[in-house]
Structure formats: structure tokens, C-alpha cells
């Protein structure tokens, strides 16, 4: 078996007396897209943030390309985070920088790339997400969908080996979801390794290599969309999705 690109082993997180993640393990083979689903409060966001150590875990370990990361070594941690890009639900673009500088700033200040080169690279990434004509606009001047695409360009500019996406479309108006999903779909085609928390079940069904169902801080089930979502199978995942669909239908 080939070594997974990213491997999280037995991650536990406790805040106060609250066990938020209980021995969660996840293995990401190269080029795979794993989709995290589960009810609100299941721990999806927390787990994604432990994967790049924005939230420290109490026990467990992270391995990149088979090598355990020493998270106490600041240098190693910062280098690791450059390899693991992250996309947030509410975009978190840097509000004082225009789209181009949002993408270029980490290239310049973290990777030490010279200004002009960084800008060229940033422009290339903006093109990739279809926003080269918005380069000089500030976050306040962009739509939600455009902001999220800039955020994706910003992460891609660092040449990450893995991309973590935490509900990248759930802060968006329905008509803007498509443009962001289209970009993510292109990334799967380019073979980028990704973990994504989402409620977009059609997207997950179509593109996920594996669906991971979480509840109460644990992984309850994982498997291919066919295994978990096929008519006639009785999986927790299928129950959850059925309820999700009814909930959406009720709203209409």
C-alpha cells in the first residue's frame, strides 16, 4: 500500500470537560477527495482545524508523507502549514489588501518570493479561478462567491499538497454556490488532495472518493458514495442525508 499524503492518527480534543474529538483518524491518499458530513456540532470544523494545528490536539499525531510532524518545533509547524492549505466558511480574506495582494502576501512574507514574481504568480492563480479582472478590488468590493474564489487562489499560490475546506459554500447565496463548486471540481480533476466538510450532497455524491460521516466527535461510518448512499443500503449516512433532503424540502 502506498503511504498516504496526510495521515491523522487518533486525534483527541477536549475543551473543558467536553470531549469534542474522540480518537478520530483519517488517511488521505494522494489525489483523493474525502467529504466530511454530519450534524451541526459533530466536530467537523474542529477536526479540520486540528489537521493544520490551528486547534491543538490533546493526543494523537499528524503525518505528512509518512513523516510525523513535530508540532512543538515552530519552524516545522510553519513549514507544515504551508503544505496544508485551508479554506474557511467565511472566507477570511485580508480586509486591507486587494485580491492580488491577498494572494501574494504569503508568497512574499512567508516564502520570501520577490514582489514582482509573487504578483505574477498571484495573477496566474486569480486566472485559474476566473478573477484576473478583479485583481485590484478589495474584499469589501467582491461578492461572496468571488471572495471564496480569491481565498482558494490564495491557498493554491502556496503550492499546498493538501487542501482543507470547511463548508466553503455555506455562507453563500444559492446562486453563487455553483461558481465555487466549479472551481473545487476543477481542483479534483487536477488531482489535488482534499478534505472538505459540506452539506452539498449532490456534489459529494458526484465527486467524493470517500464520504466520512461524523457525529458527536467520532467517525461513525466511512466509505465510497456508492456504498453509503445506494438505494436499499441502511447506513447512518443515508438516514442523515434523507433527513437533510426533507429538511431542505420543508423549507421550500
Amino acid at each position: 500500500m502506498t503511504v498516504p499524503i496526510l495521515f491523522a492518527r487518533d486525534i483527541c480534543v477536549t475543551i473543558g470537560s467536553n470531549e469534542i474529538l474522540k480518537n478520530v483518524s483519517l488517511s488521505l491518499p494522494k489525489g483523493s477527495l474525502k467529504v466530511l458530513i454530519g450534524p451541526s456540532g459533530a466536530g467537523k470544523s474542529t477536526f479540520l482545524q486540528t489537521l493544520n494545528h490551528l486547534i491543538p490536539h490533546d493526543s494523537g499525531c499528524l503525518e505528512l508523507n509518512g513523516k510525523e510532524i513535530n508540532l512543538n518545533n515552530k519552524r516545522e509547524l510553519y513549514a507544515y502549514r504551508q503544505q496544508v492549505g485551508m479554506i474557511f466558511q467565511d472566507f477570511n480574506l485580508f480586509d486591507h489588501l486587494n485580491a492580488l495582494d491577498n494572494v501574494a502576501i504569503a508568497l512574499r512574507k512567508v516564502k520570501g518570493v520577490e514582489r514582482q514574481t509573487a504578483h505574477n504568480r498571484a495573477m496566474q492563480e486569480l486566472k485559474r479561478v476566473g478573477l484576473e479582472d478583479k485583481a485590484t478590488l478589495y474584499p469589501a468590493e467582491l461578492s461572496g462567491g468571488q471572495k471564496q474564489r480569491v481565498a482558494i487562489a490564495r491557498a493554491l499560490a502556496m503550492d499546498p499538497t493538501v487542501l482543507l475546506l470547511d463548508e466553503p459554500t455555506s455562507a453563500l447565496d444559492p446562486e453563487l454556490i455553483g461558481e465555487v463548486l466549479a472551481v473545487i471540481r476543477d481542483l479534483t480533476r487536477d488531482g489535488l488532495t482534499m478534505v472538505m466538510a459540506t452539506h452539498q450532497m449532490d456534489f459529494a455524491r458526484a465527486l467524493a472518493h470517500e464520504i466520512v460521516f461524523m457525529q458527536d466527535g467520532e467517525i461513525i461510518e466511512q466509505g465510497s458514495p456508492e456504498e453509503l448512499l445506494q438505494e436499499g443500503t441502511s447506513s447512518r449516512t443515508r438516514d442523515f442525508c434523507a433527513r437533510l433532503v426533507t429538511a431542505i424540502d420543508d423549507k421550500r
Binding site: 492549505g85 504569503a106 491557498a155
Partner: peptide, 14 residues
């Protein structure tokens, strides 16, 4: 917003 610091950290900034 704390997201600004998170996003910067996620890009590998100290």
C-alpha cells in the same frame, strides 16, 4: 475578527 489571524496562520505565517 479572529479569522484574520487564523487565515494568516493557516498560510504558514508566524
Amino acid at each position: 475578527k479572529s479569522g484574520q489571524l487564523q487565515a494568516a496562520s493557516a498560510l504558514g505565517m508566524s
